[in-house]
Design a protein around this nucleic acid. Structure first.
Lengths: 195, 195
DNA sequence: GTCTATAGTGCGATAGAC
DNA sequence: GTCTATCGCACTATAGAC
């Protein structure tokens, strides 16, 4: 650790933190690099020293967040007799992460609509993020627990349902604690896939 | 009809048409009023004669599109013995409209993330647009055909599933013709709600 | 109603001192 | 690595002639 380390970690992290807050409150387009620098308490030149462009800043922030999300999803050895229960645990871990990291979750939604990032970039991120989901669906189909619909459609549907439910609970945090709501959200998800 | 009517309808409509195309190809923020006017073949001053601001232009375009969408959804007298079939017809009408009006559908998605419009404005639009959906769910619940989950959650879920499926088919138009895919999309939707 | 011309603003990014 | 200062550009919106 350097002797002269200041109380706030490093300026790069301060910039990422400030950017996240501003992005989710104002949108990515509406947030200027100058305002990010000002909020972070650094100069605009410093921002462009750490990130060659605003676009790169957005992408780097996104990747860090998704890395954190994937770590919250504990891996399983899938069991035929336990598949619904195992899926429920994973679903709840994902929802809990979204609730505890509402800014991060909202930012990911914004990035999906942020047009300066290519569709290819987004598709790659999506595939990485939800590889565990594909395993569950294929495993369930092999054992006749999950319907044999086309896998691409099912992946999109599952992702969409997760986004919808997590957004609902983020916008209505008091309902996330009620079993009636959290049970219903998972059942809506699970029943759509069952045979 | 005025004697001096030009071949292109009126300039206001030309502006709306140009705006739609540019918005879905570049995003709303990334599209300048100047480029809309240029594409429409009119001057920037003319744009601001018809729309007091870019924001109003966006909202007016959005309302026109949603009006058109709602007209495509034929009303039904809901019947207990026919509910699944009736819902399927409505679902397919909605998907077909989205496919035939991909630009319009994509634009609606962009508007939902366009932050200059207030959350209240968007919520109002959502309620208007999907009132028929609420009727179906409540009717189905009364007759024990549809699960008794909280109605707000079900409405969000239904809307999300429609957006996911229509986006999937817009991005993979060749699959929309295959019964395997279109049947699966509806079943994913319907099964999630059934008792 | 439509045009041309432009005012006024704020942006992303760079240069160069320290 | 960080700063100050600023460039060059594109944007929304307006003014005023026709």
């Amino acid at each position: 650790m350097p002797i002269h380390s200041n109380q706030p970690k490093n300026k790069k992290q301060q910039l990422l933190d400030a950017a996240l807050t501003l992005f989710v409150n104002q949108g990515i387009y509406a947030t200027s690099t100058a305002s990010i620098a000002k909020t972070a308490g650094v100069a605009t030149g410093t921002l462009f020293h750490h990130f060659p462009s605003k676009e790169v800043l957005v992408l780097e922030l996104y990747k860090k967040i998704k890395q954190d999300f994937v770590l919250q999803i504990a891996p399983f050895k899938l069991e035929v007799t336990q598949l619904e229960q195992q899926t429920k645990v994973i679903w709840q871990q994902a929802i809990d992460w979204a609730l505890a990291n509402a800014d991060q979750q909202n930012f990911c939604l914004l990035v999906m609509q942020y047009q300066p990032l290519s569709a290819q970039t987004k598709a790659q991120i999506f595939a990485d993020e939800f590889s565990f989901l594909k395993e569950i669906i294929l495993f369930g189909q092999q054992h006749q627990l999950i319907a044999n619909y086309p896998i691409e459609l099912m992946l999109e549907s599952a992702h969409g349902q997760f986004l919808t439910s997590s957004q609902f609970f983020i916008n209505n945090t008091e309902l996330a604690q009620e079993a009636k709501y959290s049970e219903a959200a998972f059942k809506l998800f699970w029943k759509s896939f069952t045979n």
